[in-house]
């Protein structure tokens, strides 16, 4: 077998077992050692033969790649799992009925703190470029629950704490319910935070894309630089301060929206039954504020003539004209609430 044939077969078999992310490194390694053997005087055939059977190479790699990090019990029921940042690209957290705190690590490892309770445990696994933190319900409890037909039992919960190394530049995907989600002092490529019946707090973050989603909870964002920001809740307020983000889409219902120190090119805010108030808003492309049964008040950067204004409300005063022809599109609409928008240079 030639070197080329050997490497092709090895690669196609690695892809078949779902280790395509590992295949490049593996191929590079074997390419290098075959070249080194040939350089030391072996024939290409002999070199490939010395490596042995491809299937047993695959088997040994498969075993090595499933070695999971080992949780260490620090206090009764409290486990800390350390993972070397290495090639980790995706951090995935999936839980129910719990809060999560994601913050920066003091060193170049991930440190994950989880609690095991009578009902619940966590599986922390590492394969390829992924770390997964997955909550599971203990079998014994699941059985009892199915016999007696109840859905859950209140027990004390402990938030999961995930510390992210500063060197990390991959993706964070966090999903829980009935608990809050907090992220602070982290940089990442993509950040997704989802919860239900809990608040979301995002602070001191640099990222390309951030998506926060909850229901029955507020969203608070402070000091964030992001290429794209999506924030959605229902029955909760949204508060944004010090945001530099070309695109910001924020929506809630039955909640107020407070905005301060925002820089971007597109800002789209909508609520219902809530006030929208804002100051220091500097947007170059499009500003949209929509509400119903709530007033819209605040100050935008520049002069009124910088904006192309469309505005309307009902049963209340509106201080904006319609039909100005500036370069920035400004669309303000509500009902049963006044519109009172000012401009910083007037």
């Amino acid at each position: 077998m030639t070197k080329k044939e050997f490497l092709c077969e090895l690669e196609s078999k690695l892809i078949k077992i779902g280790k395509s992310t590992e295949s490049k490194k593996t191929i590079e390694y074997f390419d290098e050692v075959i070249s080194d053997m040939i350089e030391s005087g072996m024939t290409e055939n002999d070199a490939v033969e010395k490596l042995g059977n491809i299937d047993s190479i695959i088997d040994s790699i498969r075993d090595e790649l499933t070695t999971d990090p080992i949780p260490v019990e620090k206090k009764k029921g409290e486990y800390v799992t350390d993972v070397v940042a290495g090639s980790v690209e995706n951090l995935i957290y999936d839980d129910k009925n719990n809060s999560v705190i994601i913050e920066s690590s003091p060193d170049d490892e991930f440190h994950i703190t989880t609690h095991e309770t009578e009902q619940k445990g966590y599986n922390i696994s590492q394969s390829g470029n992924d770390i997964k933190i997955i909550a599971f319900e203990k079998e014994g409890f699941k059985k009892i629950r199915s016999i007696f037909g109840f859905t859950s039992v209140n027990e004390k919960t402990y938030p999961v704490i995930i510390k992210i190394p500063r060197t990390f530049s991959g993706n964070i995907d966090s999903k829980t319910t009935n608990g809050s989600a907090q992220i602070k002092g982290v940089s990442a490529n993509n950040i997704t935070l989802k919860t239900r019946n809990g608040s979301v707090r995002i602070e001191s973050i640099a990222t390309k894309y951030i998506d926060a989603d909850t229901t029955n909870g507020s969203i608070t964002v402070n000091s964030v630089a992001s290429d794209h920001t999506e924030l959605h809740t229902t029955n909760g307020s949204i508060t944004l301060n010090s945001i530099a983000s070309p695109t910001i889409n924020a929506s809630t219902s039955n909640g107020t929206v407070h905005l301060s120190s925002i820089a971007g090119s597109s800002l789209n805010v909508s609520t219902s039954n809530g006030t929208v108030d804002f100051r220091s808003i500097s947007v170059s492309g499009t500003v949209i504020f929509h509400s119903s049964n709530g007033k819209i008040v605040g100050t935008l950067a520049g002069k009124m003539s910088d904006y192309a204004i469309t505005s309307n409300t009902s049963n209340a005063k509106n201080n904006l004209p319609n039909g100005t022809s500036g370069g920035i599109k400004l669309d303000v609409s509500t009902s049963n609430g006044r519109i009172d928008v000012h401009f910083s240079e007037e």
């Binding site: 593996t26 390694y29 290098e32 080194d36 490596l51 042995g52 047993s56 090595e64």
Partner: peptide
């Protein structure tokens, strides 16, 4: 590097370029 590590290891380990790879991966991760 891979090929040279094999040469340096004690022969009792029966190390080959193939068996070394998963060990290096493990040490790296």
């Amino acid at each position: 590097y891979g090929y040279l590590i094999i040469k340096d290891l004690p022969p009792e380990l029966d190390a080959t370029e193939s068996t070394l790879y998963p060990i290096l991966k493990r040490l790296e991760s």
